[in-house]
Nucleic acid binder design. Structure first.
Lengths: 335, 335
DNA sequence: CTGAAAGCGCTTACAG
DNA sequence: CTGAAAGCGCTTACAG
């Protein structure tokens, strides 16, 4: 493999001058420049990024921490991040954490030693001390999807409360009076907020809140199949369901089919996420659309901004929380 | 940040000795060892991976090239790769190529200069010259999902022909006599093989092949919606559909619903992949199950084997093609 | 405008 | 068993 010295020798100059021509920093005579370009061409030289990174203290690589890339919302976010990173000359390292604190810690420790330039974190939980520590240690970090109010970390999120409120409101305007909820893990703020939106939507329209209509995830994403069946065994009058994520909605839809319940005439169903597939299930799912790809784009953009700011000023910029808009997508699972 | 020198000074030894204790190579006195361990603890030292990589000429990082992580089969494969890589001390860089030759080339050129240790490639197309070049240049490489018969590159695949043959055979045994096919992009060998399986299954049971029943993807993954509607506008007697991938099957199912066609009594449908969601659509999709996660695991394992072999012997081991078993998963979209 | 030198943080023969 | 030295391939003041 050709190194900078190979090129220097061939062009009859020093390594310094080659370096300067490549980086474009400092003066180089035009004819020397041409000689060097030619030598680069001949040798097929391209710089060793590792050596450069070592010298510069940064690797042009960012890490993406997700709970599990198999969860349907993450591929779209990931794609947004990667496209943006690539355009800016960054590579992205993918890390599935399963929200396991040890895995998280293991990754972060290792990545610090790789001079990773920054972290996009989608796997933030209340137990994620390492991530908070990461940020306090001065590592550029941005939170996506998951968040914590008042956190000092850049955050990209949506208004979960209002979006849920609107979704349930839509069910109510469609005539549903006994609305159940398929509620995700309550240790996550985003699900608590969607729950709060559900509660307030009922309250504000004078509908009673009924604890019996709250399906709480036990374990495994399929648990809502059983929960839905139980729900209808005890509550014949349920006529609407708000699923706090699309994958949960798919399972609910499935259970409803198996119960012989007609959608949306007997029971209207609305989801949350607008994952690709929600348009393709039967019936096509009405849902709240999160701009997943865009969230990834913004996250990467913000992270890169932090990285550059830190290089210039030695510290991270003041944190910004960006709240993106959601849309209510009406398909055929609601009336 | 503590470096190896910080530790050496604190322990009152040389950097060499610290390096030796950490790597476990070469002799170190037990009491010196303890002193060093203690110094490491006190300083919170952990080695700079970049410096090590530069010296060693390898970065303990592998790159994963996929067409698009948003395609439903890749998250599972990716997860298998990453889990295995992590267990073996490797990180994984995610690269979406869109099968764009320029993006592919850009990534590969860049990654070579990062001393990436190896490549898992899921985005191989007939035009992927860079990938063949990569392998000939001695980079550990393994192909997953996509493949090329007789390629000198390690390959993990399934028997696409036989699996398709079996799937269509199942449709026939269920009584279907006019079976259409939703055929993926024919430049990919895997689709050509599935097509061949379809053709032979018809032939071997004495059913006529009818070109009018072949739906060929035009552009955009949703094109099969329109194609399915056209199909039934012209061919009332179709009573079975073989979709060459699950996402295509979802679209076909959707179109069938909209046409008011009963599944499976009017038309039986079978897919290919057994993506997570195929159990959750309505009706649950019968399909050919590819062991996606396991394919990822095996791919990473093989790649790491190549990497280690190359370190030892200076050359890549002889290529191996591994053909994994598929299962026919019978759900309610077939009779 | 150009080159020699030092240094990023590690590892590894080599001598002792 | 241990340390000094050289080197991985780059960049960047500094002197000329």
């Amino acid at each position: 493999m050709a190194t900078i010295k190979t090129v220097a020798k061939l062009a009859g100059v020093s390594a310094s001058t080659v370096s300067r021509t490549i980086s474009g920093k400092g003066y180089v005579n035009d004819t020397t420049k041409e000689k060097i370009q030619e030598a680069i061409r001949q040798t097929g030289y391209s710089p060793n990024v590792l050596a450069k990174s070592l010298k510069m203290g940064s690797s042009n690589t960012i890490a993406l921490l997700v709970p599990d890339i198999q969860n349907l919302i993450f591929p779209a976010i990931t794609r947004g991040i990667e496209d943006t990173a690539r355009k800016n000359g960054f590579a992205v390292l993918l890390c599935n954490t399963d929200e396991d604190s040890d895995v998280e810690k293991g990754y972060i420790d290792k990545l610090k030693n790789r001079w990773i330039d920054g972290f996009v974190v989608c796997s933030y939980t209340p137990g994620s001390n390492h991530i908070r520590a990461l940020h306090s240690a001065g590592f550029p970090t941005v939170l996506v999807n998951r968040y914590e109010p008042g956190s000092p970390i850049d955050t990209i999120t949506i208004d979960n409360y209002q979006s849920a409120y609107n979704a349930v409101g839509y069910l109510i305007r469609g005539g549903s009076k006994h609305i159940a909820i398929a509620l995700g893990r309550e240790e996550l703020i985003l699900y608590r907020e969607r729950y709060r939106g559900y509660c307030d939507a009922l309250k504000d329209t004078g509908l009673p809140y009924d604890e019996a209509l709250v399906m709480r995830e036990t374990s495994g994403s399929d648990s809502f199949y059983g929960l839905t069946k139980e729900l209808f065994a005890k509550n014949k009058n349920v006529d609407g369901i708000f699923a706090t994520s699309d994958p949960k909605a798919f399972v609910v839809l499935h259970a409803l089919h198996d119960l012989g319940i007609k959608i949306p005439s007997d029971v209207a169903v609305i989801g949350f996420d607008n994952v690709d597939l929600s348009a393709k299930v039967e019936p096509p799912l009405s849902t709240v659309s999160q701009p997943l790809y865009e969230m990834g784009v913004i996250a990467a953009t913000k992270l890169i901004r932090q990285i550059k700011y830190k290089v210039k000023n030695g510290v991270l910029p003041a944190p910004v929380c960006e709240v993106l808009n959601t849309d209510l997508i009406v398909r055929r699972s609601t009336r």
